[in-house]
Design a protein around this nucleic acid. Structure first.
Lengths: 196, 196
DNA sequence: ACACCTCCGTACGGTCCCGTATGGAACTGA
DNA sequence: TCAGTTCCATACGGGACCGTACGGAGGTGT
């Protein structure tokens, strides 16, 4: 067995960005600290400070990585789906199932951070804009679509928070989640999917 | 002019709890640190450590203060209103106007913190429960009321997040907020208020 | 084999915070 | 007024992290 994370000889900038993103997901922005991240790769600060001028640059690299690979992931997930209605359904069900929100929650927790703020702003804007186009394809006026999109994304974000802080408030089993999802989509003006 | 925050001679435990809560609102859980809070009252650590055994106790005191005075505030705000519909409207409009969410956002940002978690859990549970009763009074079944309450609170929380991270996404003027609020309430199954 | 550049470990000083120890000021009551 | 209690400032040691300095090991080309 070749050594993987430990004992590795040389690391690239991408390795550090990935490690920083991992730390971000697990411990929040504060966990993206030079020494702990270095230790997570079995290295020391000397290595980090060769690839990055300072801690902020390391954090920025992690955020860039997340922003790009995450938008790609969403596109790849929804692109093959034709119906905007099915897209919305898939999108919303992801919140109830997925655990990917870790990074998003970490960023929301540090929304004031000057390094985080612009990234969070761009992602939020992009997502709401995308939701608005979906609602537009469903026949809503631009103004209505916009409002629905903001409301839907607010519910999305709040949902992610509740999953972490008060999971007991949410439906536990699959049937309950399905019913909750149907109800939420219906409330937002999206009729339930025809069974089949 | 009598000295107020500076030059004060003796502080009580309540003074420290209030100062800690202030720090929590302004800088998050991390800002509830012994030395900075002491400095905010023109004192030193020595005083803090006389009233509290450690930092955690100071944070707990701040959270207790918030939990009690905040639930009182909500009760005082909604108690005089008779109609459950008007209560909901008042409740939701508070998010779009108020800036009180600072503490809530700080707590959500540190939801994993073992000191924060139980407080956040209790408050969340209480609020959703209260929302559910309101929806119940509007004629929804218990199951539907529960789902609507969770959805409404998720939207509430997400809304608070958006106000901080992406205020540009939300309606800026009063008219826009009113329209957005109407739309949101309507989506949740609450008909718009009759004008007058 | 040699110099060279890339990458990294170690050591150091600095900041901010926690928590403890201790002496002394400020108030209290008799 | 004076002893006792309450409250607080100062000083100290420890830990986590940042950033810098520097030397040395690892690869690379010739």
């Amino acid at each position: 067995m070749a050594e993987k994370s430990a004992g590795q000889r040389r690391r690239t900038r991408s390795d550090w960005a990935a490690a920083a993103l991992r730390a971000l997901a697990e411990g929040g922005v504060a966990a993206v600290a030079v020494e702990p991240v270095a230790a997570s790769l079995g290295a020391t600060k000397g290595s980090v400070y060769w690839h990055f001028p300072n801690r902020e640059a390391l954090l920025t690299a992690a955020l860039e990585l997340w922003e790009t690979e995450h938008t790609e992931a969403v596109i790849e997930l929804l692109e093959p789906i034709a119906e905007p209605l099915a897209k919305l359904r898939t999108l919303f069900s992801a919140v109830l199932e997925d655990t990917d929100n870790r990074v998003l929650l970490a960023l929301l927790a540090s929304a004031e951070d000057p390094v985080v703020a612009p990234v969070l702003g761009r992602v939020t804007e992009r997502r709401i804009g995308y939701l608005a186009t979906l609602f537009g394809e469903l026949g809503w006026t631009p103004t209505q679509s916009r409002r629905r999109a903001v409301l839907a994304y607010a519910a999305y974000v709040g949902q992610a928070q509740l999953m972490r802080s008060s999971p007991k408030m949410l439906p536990a089993n699959k049937v309950g989640r399905r019913a909750y999802l149907d109800d939420a989509l219906h409330a937002l003006g999206v009729p339930p999917a025809s069974k089949g």
